[in-house]
Amino acid sequence: MNLLALTFPDIAHLLEWPGLFGHDDGTNAWYALNKVGIIYLFAFVAPVLIFVSAKRRYDRSEVIVAPRGIQNVAETSVGFIRENIIMQSIGPDGLRYLPFLLSIFLFIFFSNITEVVPLIHFPANARMAMPVTLAILVWLVFNGIGIKHHGFFGYLKNVVVPPGVPKALLPLVALIEFVSTFVVRPFSLAVRLFANMLAGHLLLVTFAVLSHTVFWLALTDDTPTWLVIITPAPFLMLIGLTGFEILVAVLQAFIFTILTAVYIGGALHPEH
């Protein structure tokens, strides 16, 4: 692509990173650790630091203490998952899954938010790796819960036979329900997260490249005046989109978590 001497980088330049090790001849071995892997490790370390520092405060004080500082972050996230996700979509018996849902939420959030962190500027979930892994994990978990609570055939019947369907429509509905539960759910879960983050990343890259190009063009002598005047426009757009991407990073973590909770709730209480 070439417009106004603007070169859009090849998508491989935006998404594929060489490993720090295990990287030979342009290909990565199975153990290669690249930028994406480092962001995943960051998404493990950051929540752990927050929660361990909060935990140390409880361990130090015998009496009940008012939350303070970073402890508020930990407690707010726990309270958010409990009140806004579990209580609303599963019910009180879903509190057992709090650690799982909280881990999913924090992991996705911290690997998304690096999209707008200066000098990192890459959402790890714009790679298919973790969205698909987490989607498969969620698929295993909610089906496992359903089978554990209702038995294999009981669960299958709950899934494919929704209550109140006329006999004549049953085969069609059963097929649709089967496909939507066992195929579409994990697929859409993975694709939603991946495509949202990838689209956001491409959008930010587009406006960053545009800002860069327009800025250098404005510095050369034979640039038309109108181009100099619109120089700040892509940059302002970039700022606005950065704010929007922060929202998307939170929202996608929330949606992934609440859909997980809804699927678990559906496996637990099929009547809803």
Binding site: N84, Q88, S89, S188, V191, R192, F194, A195, N196, L198, A199, L251, F254, I255, I258, L259, V262
Partner: peptide, 19 residues
């Protein structure tokens, strides 16, 4: 909450188009 769920389901189609 329900609105976000609805948006997520609706948006999935557009995202499949993007993919």
């Amino acid at each position: 909450t329900t609105m976000f769920l609805g948006i997520a389901f609706t948006e999935a189609l557009a995202l499949i188009g993007f993919v």
